[in-house]
């Protein structure tokens, strides 16, 4: 079997786990963990595609950008979680409307 096809099969499994976590859980932390797992899968897919097309340097530049964005997204999500927890004592994604101004 093609080496890259095998890699991408595992990446598809990682994406499935991440999306499943985001769909099945109502805890904000678990949602963010699902998002992280999805982004790990996407990152590996980008690098793998870069290795396939002999364009690894460009893929690395894009992945570095993606890592920075990921950190900001996680920090903002956790800030919302802590704020919501301080206001209402909950960490549930469906109870975020307590933050309504």
């Amino acid at each position: 079997m093609n080496f890259f096809a095998f890699d991408w099969y595992f990446i598809a499994l990682l994406l499935f786990i991440g999306f499943y976590a985001m769909l099945a859980s109502s805890s904000i932390i678990r949602q963010l963990i699902g998002l992280e797992i999805v982004s790990k899968g996407v990152m590996l897919a980008v690098i793998s595609a870069g290795a396939l097309t002999n364009n690894l340097q460009l893929a690395q530049a894009i992945v570095i950008t993606m890592i920075v964005i990921e950190v900001v997204v996680v920090a903002a999500g956790l800030a919302l979680l802590v704020k919501n927890h301080r206001l209402s004592g909950l960490a549930d994604i469906w109870k975020l409307n307590g933050l309504k101004g």
């Binding site: 990152m43 893929a59 690395q60 890592i67």
Partner: peptide, 12 residues
């Protein structure tokens, strides 16, 4: 891809 790996290890 060592640069992406280093970023991944230190940041993620």
């Amino acid at each position: 891809a060592p640069w992406a790996a280093v970023f991944e290890l230190s940041v993620c």
